[in-house]
Amino acid sequence: MLLEVENLEVAYGDYQVVWGVSLAVAAGESVALLGPNGSGKSTVVNTISGLLPAKAGDIRFNGVSLVDRPTHARAPLGIAHVLERRRVFPHLTVQQNLFLGAWHSAARAARGETAQRIFGLFPRLLERQNQLARTLSGGEQQMLAIGRGLMALPRLLMVDEPFLGLAPQVAQQLQSVFETLKSEGMAILFIEQNVRLALSMAGRGYILEGGRLAIAGPAATLVDSPEVRRIFLGV
């Protein structure tokens, strides 16, 4: 397994929000982490990238335990995390944002070529490469956030609600980019509230409810599951 999360527990101070969550992503696999708003999806993925400390449990990448590594020492292993709400550097240009994404030495050595590849995936970013990121539209900022994540040459891309608030055409374009990345062998962990959308791209899914794993399984069985409908619609 590329990523293994085992019995993860996470708390904000005394307020525990994630209880015994386990999940795994194999190399080249696409997996969805689903759950309604506030169910703990972002908390889990932020703990994987080290922004939050794990209270208990283990996180391994390629067999290496991550829990004692600071955030910045996780990216070089091949993990990219595209944070919820894009989080581009507003006062830097598109090109500066991208180049900063290639921080560790292996990525930095290839950053010119990688940027060309990303401009191929998102031609809008090429047109806007000298603009400040804050002047981009929401969709363009999301492209930039994903492009910046890809600049680190990750083996696993974790994207937290990338479709939130996007126009349908932009969402479609993004979907086709994810399909391209999958076909190139990149593992992707989709963090989503939109079950149908996520399961159309992922082979398997995990569903969180109130910080606990409720169901997990292949996309096909989750899509039509009445239990999933209950969790998301409360019926």
Binding site: A75, A80, H81, L83, R87, L100, G101, W103
Partner: peptide, 11 residues
């Protein structure tokens, strides 16, 4: 500008 976004990139 964004400490967390910078940190996950390896900064």
């Amino acid at each position: 500008q964004d400490r967390q976004a910078a940190a996950v990139m390896g900064i």
